[in-house]
């Protein structure tokens, strides 16, 4: 086989794998529990505001909620999560009227 043919075949195989992974991502998303309305209902009913990504310390459990140990809570809109709050400035209050766009259901 010509080397160029081998390269094209190799590239084609890669593209096919990528296409298959793309299809896989759709299938996996469509049946993913994150989209189940049961979970959304829990969030809504229990008024949850944070993800369980770090329960190692109280200050990492609810990064969005002000607390005794929050690093920056004076400026409205300042992020309560250290060290993020020390690096990322709070938004301009004038633009608070504009909402951050939130994606609606589904991918």
């Amino acid at each position: 086989m010509r080397r160029s043919t081998m390269f094209f075949v190799f590239t084609a195989i890669n593209l096919v794998i990528m296409a298959l992974l793309y299809i896989q991502s759709h299938i996996s998303l469509s049946e993913h529990h994150i989209l189940r309305k049961d979970i959304k209902e829990i969030v809504k009913t229990l008024h949850l505001t944070d993800m369980v990504l770090a329960t190692d310390a109280r200050y990492t459990r609810n990064p969005t909620q002000a607390d005794l140990f929050s690093a920056f809570q004076d400026y409205p809109g300042s992020i309560e999560h250290f060290p993020t709050g020390s690096v990322i400035p709070p938004p301009d209050m004038d633009s608070m009227g504009k909402l951050i766009e939130i994606k609606t259901d589904g991918p």
Binding site: K40, V43, H47, K103
Partner: peptide, 25 residues
Amino acid sequence: LRQEAHLLLKNSPEIVVQKMRAGRH
């Protein structure tokens, strides 16, 4: 992770009101 956060947290309360005394919760 960001997408998951967006999808889940848009069901959170629109506003949470906390009380502060002397700048503390």
